[in-house]
Each structure stands twice: as structure tokens, then as C-alpha cells.
Amino acid sequence: MRQDPIMQSALRLGDDALILGQRLSEWCGHAPTIEVDLSLANLGLDLIGQAMHFLGLAGDIEGQGRDADTLAFFRTDLDFTNCLLVEQPNGDFAQTMTRQWLYSTYQQLLFEAMAGVEDARFAEVADKALKEVRYHAELSADWVIRLGDGTDVSHQKMVDALGWLWRFVPELFQMDELDSLAVEAGVGVDKAALRPAYDAAINAVFEEAKLTRPDDQRTLTGGRHGHHSEHLGHLLATMQHIPRSHPDARW
């Protein structure tokens, strides 16, 4: 079946937000202080909200009667189109904040560009979410700086976190045929063109955080086409099992 690039664009945006939101919600009650607990929950709530918008939009575009919940709870691993970065486990606080910073910095640039696309359905959600995402990028950068330039222990944890997560960054900017069609259709953004601005933003934080930018690694990719790490299956099993156990139920 040929995929609709407009619907798929909404799906990819929704899946990123949903999976990262789900990951952040795992922190609830387990953060280093209560204040940080509340911060992480706020990030999670913003992302789950974005997921509801984009998945709802994807369902509307598809027009087959699937709503945001159906798309979130009744698709399998192979149907999920999120990038690999967001499904990586929380690990320690350094890993969570590194993942957040790498993603939110990208998401900010993406939404800034998307707020100007022709299709108002995409432009409006991007514009609204942008305010949230700017805060996410700033808060996570604040943390990267404090952990990078904190103690020897925190610095090392940041080096370890980056050492692993860096390999998932290139996937964020990859353009496939579907992405190009989405640009043509006035809903998508040329993600590859965002990379220089991304590098500039990231490098500035590296410097302030006294962290060395990792060497480029062999890129791991596949998320946009349903090929994920093993982690996603477990995340989905947890997230989906209640609605799937009661397929006829309304909640």
C-alpha cells in the first residue's frame, strides 16, 4: 500500500512526541528532587499533548475512523515511526537530560520552520507547541551545562550519555522520499537543512558545559520505517496492554 506522505508526516511527529512523553512519564516520583520531578512531568505533559494533536491529525487525514488513541494503542512496533533517540531508556538523569536536549534542540528548529508551512493544520500545531519546546530546549541545556561542568562524577556521566546517544542524532535530519513529498505538499520541512543551525546551538552548549563534542559514530537508524531497538517493544507492551486486553471498552 502506498503511504500518504501527509498522514505519515503527522504520524512521525506524533510518534516522536508520544514515545518521548511516555519515557518522561516513567520518571514521575523518581527524580533527584521534587522540583525536578515536577519539571520532568511538565515536559512529559507537553509531549503527550503534542502527540494527541499530531496523532489526531494523522487519523483525520487518513479518514478511516482511527483516532489518536487507536493510533497510539493499536499499532504494532513495525507501524511506529518515531526516531530511535526518543525510545532510548531513561538511564540516569544525565542520559535523560542528554536525550531531551538533543531532541528538543532539533524539535525547536523543526517547529520554527514548520510554523511557516503552507498547510495551516501543521503550521498551527507547530506554532503552539513551539512555546513548549523552547522551554524544553532551554531547561535541558541548563541541565547539560550544570552536569557537564559540575563534579567529576557528573561530567563523566555526561560523557557516557553522549557517547551512546550521539549515534542517534543523524537520523533526526535524514530525508527520505516521504519527507520530500511532504515538503512538496506544504506540510513538511527540509530537515537536512536544519543541521547547521543545530550544530551551532549544540556546540555553544558543549562549550559552556566543558564537554567535547563526540566524534561522529556509525549512525543507527531505521525508526522512521518501523525498525526499532528492542526497547520499543517493551515500552509498547506496557503502554498498550490495557486497551488491547479490552478492545471494545471505552475509558
Binding site: L18, Q22, S25, E26, C28, G29, I34, D37, L38, A41, N42, G44, L45, I48, G49, A51, M52, L55, A68, D69, A72, F73, T238, M239, H241, I242, P243, H246, A249, W251
Partner: peptide, 20 residues
């Protein structure tokens, strides 16, 4: 992490966050 709808998930996360 297991709330059965996205709306319920958001509400529950907001509620537990409130308790914090």
C-alpha cells in the same frame, strides 16, 4: 505508563505531579 487512553494518561500524570 499503562493508562488506557492518552487523555487519561495526561490527566493522571498531571494529578500525580500535583501530589508532588
Amino acid at each position: 505508563t499503562r493508562a488506557p487512553s492518552l487523555q487519561r494518561k495526561a490527566i493522571l500524570l498531571a494529578k500525580v505531579q500535583d501530589e508532588g
